[in-house]
Write a protein that binds this DNA or RNA. Sequence first.
DNA 1: GGTATTACGCTACGACGCGTAGCGAAAGCC
DNA 2: GGCTTTCGCTACGCGTCGTAGCGTAATACC
Lengths: 211, 211
Amino acid sequence: MQSRSPASRTGRPRSATADAAILAATREALVELGWSKLTLGDVATRAGVAKTTLYRRWAGKNELVVDAVAELFDELELFDRGSLAADIEGVVLQFASILALPEARSGLMAVVAEATRDEALRERIRASVVDRQKRLVLEGRARAQARGELPAEPDPASSARTVDLIFDMVAGAVVHRTLVSAEPADEEWVHRFTGVLLRGLAGEAAHPADG
Amino acid sequence: MQSRSPASRTGRPRSATADAAILAATREALVELGWSKLTLGDVATRAGVAKTTLYRRWAGKNELVVDAVAELFDELELFDRGSLAADIEGVVLQFASILALPEARSGLMAVVAEATRDEALRERIRASVVDRQKRLVLEGRARAQARGELPAEPDPASSARTVDLIFDMVAGAVVHRTLVSAEPADEEWVHRFTGVLLRGLAGEAAHPADG
DNA sequence: GGTATTACGCTACGACGCGTAGCGAAAGCC
DNA sequence: GGCTTTCGCTACGCGTCGTAGCGTAATACC
């Protein structure tokens, strides 16, 4: 959400239910119409609010859709399944199930595309969507290091680069599989992916079927 | 390009220079304006053609931008650098340099987003952009198997799934690094990425600096 | 060279979404 | 009750869309 400055203490407060209704209506419109045919007037009508109310809270289509899609990622959680491989498979399957939703598929890529020319929008996406995933990578790695599955990296700069790399590899692969190849990231695919990620291409050939 | 059916044999032929001018103008407009602010009228003016000419050849903005961006991927080539790791690094750096172009950054993701609701557009992207990259994965793997760096996969179905997986991992990681994380996929990053891809997360820790 | 056929440039048009301004009414704090 | 902010509503100018219509240019066929 937009940073609510503490300046507005007096006067009529903004309706919290309107916020929720607008975001829900945005997701509904994304499902039915997709990004390009989604209009703010239509969203306002669906939400039962005036178009001007919508413009008072969001600068435009981009920011609105980012917030609407970001809520879908709230449920992401890294359950402890006992091993690094199982942890990765679990969270990747969660991520894939979110990307399988039509409102996420059509909305997320569009705002990322817009963000290539809009630094503020890129920061908004990072804060509300990306960082929530990156946190999972940090957690998973810490757990794996505690289990002895991964070595500790003493150099913090090198460590940060490794986290970024893993994050790009995991998120990128799932996104590409789901949105570009347009194939489901199902359990079998996730299992193969995790195998390559952990053991590499050559090593994976030695364990073709099991985990 | 759209499949030119051999039905039109008589009459004035379509100007080939107009095609090139329109696609170049589209890329130019993508750089200056980005996807959302790009208008077909503006592209027609830049190309020195009438707006109606543009509509006679392309169904809309999506198809036009796909063709304009697809030309950027023509130069992709897999040079034989002697080892699988070097081959991967070389082609990934080429791919990254294309994605670093502003006309590719702003255009490619947008059409992919649109393609989530348009099967024909998805097929157009696959034919003119994606398949050109997937061919490189096939070449690279065949070379690596000939060198003995990768084992032969006798089962064709399993083999095809592996190629798809590798393709999603390579292309996805580079795209995510470039367009979502908005960081350059430079030589250092590509080197780290290739290490993880070939040796896995655990194995990579044993070779932190070299190749 | 004449004719048919197709592409081209140009103009004009209705339709639609954008984003804003202005108004009166409603809902909170002091 | 007075102050402040939000809300719903209407209306507006603006720009783009995609198409229709027309006269002209370029090629193939006879």
